[in-house]
Nucleic acid binder design. Structure first.
Ligand SMILES: [Mn+2]
Ligand SMILES: [Mn+2]
Ligand SMILES: [Zn+2]
Ligand SMILES: [Zn+2]
Lengths: 147, 147
DNA sequence: GGCGAAATTAGACAGAGTCCAATTCTTATC
DNA sequence: GATAAGAATTGGACTCTGTCTAATTTCGCC
């Protein structure tokens, strides 16, 4: 039940129209740049850094500025279209998968892999601090090549 | 069972001597700067950023450079004296508590609080990817003020 | 088409962290 | 305690991620 079909045989025009609707459905006015940024994320369904999004969007010829990529990613996070993944101390990754899930993080290669959220249960959590509510539960399994 | 007594009534000289031994025990040659950095972390037992360590160590009068703070924190991590905590996209925190445990992270204030490791169990984890070994399990509960 | 609001942009800026070659310390040996 | 070789420290330049701003362009609507 994801935002956008990932099927390979979708005409680019249809894909953009459908992304446009997804943006509107999340209260984001569709613009050329926002659609391209959404396309970079949702057509790949991988975890991309801002820099990688910028490169992806400007692959054919420059279309979108760095400022817009940062503005747009922040907006997408606010509107719940994507999620931030904080695993690497040097950069944030953006995750088009917004269903609750966790991550393997390869500390050597930087690769991030999803762990399905509803197979995991976390027991024994203490009560939240007074007056605080949960805003997210991030479980990160850091891995590296064995041997 | 921590590395260094946190009791208030320890003579500064004794504290430094004892830190010196802790460093040696971890294969770290003790120097004036390293001892002061260790003292900043272990006397507070809180989660400090490199910048906070730098400020703490240079409080009375400048003693230690930024380069040395970064060099030393990296060395301490390698030698298992402290642990990195990656929760804030803008900076790394260093944790003098190396026993397995998890964290509350207040996204509004930046406050980091420990969650005892052996009360928590995590069930349903999938097998690690082929040829990979676990290098760490980080559970972060992001919280914010309710209402 | 024309208008006001919203979005985009270049480029300056900020902050965390790295790097390097020159200098200063440690430590082992005598 | 003096000496010498290796180890650690240092200022400052540099890189990288991310932010900000004021000017321009585009969008949604009449
Ligand atoms: Mn950084
Ligand atoms: Mn950053
Ligand atoms: Zn994910
Ligand atoms: Zn901790």
């Amino acid at each position: 039940m994801n935002a956008v079909s990932t099927s390979a045989s979708v005409r680019p025009e249809d894909e953009r129209a459908s992304l446009s609707e997804v943006l509107r459905a999340h209260g984001v006015g569709p613009t050329h740049q926002r659609i391209e940024i959404a396309r970079a994320l949702f057509s790949r369904m991988t975890h991309l850094s801002a820099d990688q999004v910028l490169a992806a969007v400007n692959q054919r010829h420059a279309e979108t500025s760095k400022a817009t990529v940062y503005n747009t990613l922040k907006l997408f996070v606010e509107k719940g279209l994507v999620r931030e993944v904080i695993v690497d101390p040097t950069k944030v990754f953006y995750d088009p998968n917004t269903s609750p899930h966790h991550h393997f993080y390869d500390v050597e290669t930087g690769e991030i892999t999803d762990i399905d959220g509803d197979r995991i249960s976390i027991l024994g959590l203490p009560a939240l601090p007074e007056g605080k509510m949960a805003a997210g539960v991030d479980l990160i399994i850091r891995v590296r090549s064995s041997a």
